[in-house]
Design a protein around this nucleic acid. Structure first.
Lengths: 331, 331
DNA sequence: CAGGAATGGTAAAACGAATTACCAAGCTGG
DNA sequence: CCAGCTTGGTAATTCGTTTTACCATTCCTG
């Protein structure tokens, strides 16, 4: 772990020269011999600049924090992968955290934001977290991008073609002659939830089918809550013959509920879920899904973060790759 | 984003006082009024120490890098959660990366290690990554813990009770009267692979059943490769009536292969997989699994990282929570 | 009332790299 | 032969904290 000064001493030059050589300063005039001598010593000593010192001067850390709800959810994993790749390409590393850190984790994140520990923040909105953290980030001028959430107050965001996806899935069910199509939505109040419900509604209206609010039920993106919501929905609306499930994880719970209520899938209850994951093909009834560009979502979020503010024109960026329906046995 | 000096000016004291107040320096003698005035200004200005400056002095960054194979794999997600919680409790944040960053990602990681960008490294061994990174970490004195891998050269490691788990799963199959039990192992050469094979072998010997190497087949922990390996195994050893699958993800591929070869599960081919994930219950035939303490693995890895070197006594630490068999329809 | 001990702080030197302004020596042109 | 340019660098400041050593006062105490 040599320092600049040590390298400089070895090479018989000043630290300034070493620094400028390492950073390829074009304005540095230097003789070929000195240059090569310095480079040689840098190479064989394996010198790497101390990050703390570099950050202190430059006010850049090379770190981007990515906050998602749940790292065990494969949907978020795919987003993470995209973000990771984009960040690596830009010379940044990703610092990931999720809600599982609890208050300690949140405190850690706040410290990171406040103390200029990160160059940027990609945040999947979450009621409790967002308010505090966003306020801090704004105050500290830490560039921030929201993932799958539009707050509307000029905050940059990256979203998926949610309405499209929901419409596509619903249309598929309509094409298969279903008349009473329910919607198992994600958590109430989130903008992407609303967008998906809107897509479902749009498809139904276009086909002249009924679509009132009693066909909608909210659920968290977990298996247990999907099961609960589906049970309630099927009991209150027994005529339903098909379901658009806005999250692939809650879809698993929903399928279990349908089965346990004696419904055959897809004969008595067809199911289409949003987001494709490899597992979908291995469910007890292989699940028809609408694939969304999750990897791109992660990638674009990072790219958006790094374009100078306002340069992109739009505050909310929709990942443009179109959703795609993958037909399996559940419909 | 005030600095120490600014706070000091506002409070009419020296920066040293502010620093020592913020860090609760017990040796600081200070009047009640001054203390409260400083605290008040710190609080209302929302002062947080600049991380780069702090790191520069203290040579601690508060960051720990966690490198796993694949963040979309729910098995690793659970490990990440445990690590996250333990790290947060210790005032550290987790910097996660996986192989998806490619060479860029590796380069980023190397920079982090070399430049004292992290306080510690938890690494899931991977041939290509390990050699370079481990060498660097050793040279830079960055504490390192290996996840599920024993290199044997004094490198601290944290492992699961792999042999136990494999034996438990195999014994379950033996109890159900299976005589020809194959083993779908994970990647060849890794220590945990060997341990699981050993557990499988032990259970068979104890029961006086045959166990030669032709009953073992290696596969990567992906669905596709699990399918390939299972196909080969069943074609070469058609007598096999049960399989211990060392990875739950490849088990999905294996089940698909068995089904496609006309075998009913569990009648013609029973399957037990190692690692329980929520999805296991939703597979086309619900999967019997051996649950392992993944969350604890992550947690212990971080704790091990933070105990002073050698203080734990043992270099390789086995997470002690016992594996548990979860019986479902596949066996 | 002198000498020592509390009290309530402060000054200054790190930490390691980046950067700007500057400088000495050698060369060139008029 | 000397003004000015080029070549090949260097000195010194800055980033924001932490920490150690130190210093004035005031307060006892014998």
């Amino acid at each position: 772990m040599p320092t600049l000064a040590e390298i400089a001493k070895l090479a018989g030059v000043s630290p300034a020269v070493v620094s400028r050589v390492v950073n390829k300063d074009k304005t540095l005039r230097i003789s070929k011999e000195t240059l090569e001598r310095v480079q040689e010593i840098v190479r064989e000593s394996g010198y790497t600049a101390n990050r703390a010192a570099r950050s202190l001067r430059s006010t850049e850390t090379g770190l981007i924090a990515l906050v998602v709800h749940d790292v065990t959810n494969p949907v978020y994993g795919e987003i993470t992968k995209g973000a990771n790749a984009a960040a690596a390409a830009a010379g940044k590393a990703i610092l990931i955290s999720d809600a599982s850190g609890g208050d300690e984790g949140t405190a850690r994140l706040m410290e990171l934001v406040s103390g200029r520990g990160i160059d940027g923040l990609v945040l999947q909105a979450d009621q409790s977290l967002s308010d505090q953290v966003l306020a801090r980030a704004a105050r500290e001028n830490v560039p921030t991008v929201l993932l799958q959430a539009e707050l509307g107050d000029g905050m940059p965001a990256v979203v998926l073609p949610d309405k499209e996806a929901a419409r596509l899935g619903t249309r598929h069910l309509i094409d298969r002659q279903h008349k009473a199509i329910g919607c198992l939505a994600t958590a109430e109040g989130l903008s992407f939830t609303e967008n998906r419900i809107e897509g479902w509604r749009a498809a139904l209206s276009e086909a002249g089918l009924p679509c009132n609010d009693s066909l909608v039920r909210y659920s968290l993106p977990t298996i247990e809550d999907g099961r609960r919501a589906m049970e309630e929905l099927l009991k209150m609306q027994p005529d339903i013959s098909a379901i658009l499930c806005c999250n692939v994880v809650s879809a698993l719970g929903a399928m279990a509920a349908a089965r346990d209520l004696g419904r055959r899938i897809p004969e008595d209850c067809a199911i289409v879920a949003i987001h494709d994951i490899p597992m979908a093909d291995f469910v007890f009834v292989p699940l028809t899904t609408v694939e969304m560009p999750l990897y791109e979502l992660g990638r674009v979020a990072i790219e958006q973060l790094m374009t100078p503010a306002g340069a992109s024109g739009r505050e909310t960026l929709v990942v443009s790759k179109a959703p795609r329906l993958i037909h399996r046995a559940s419909s």
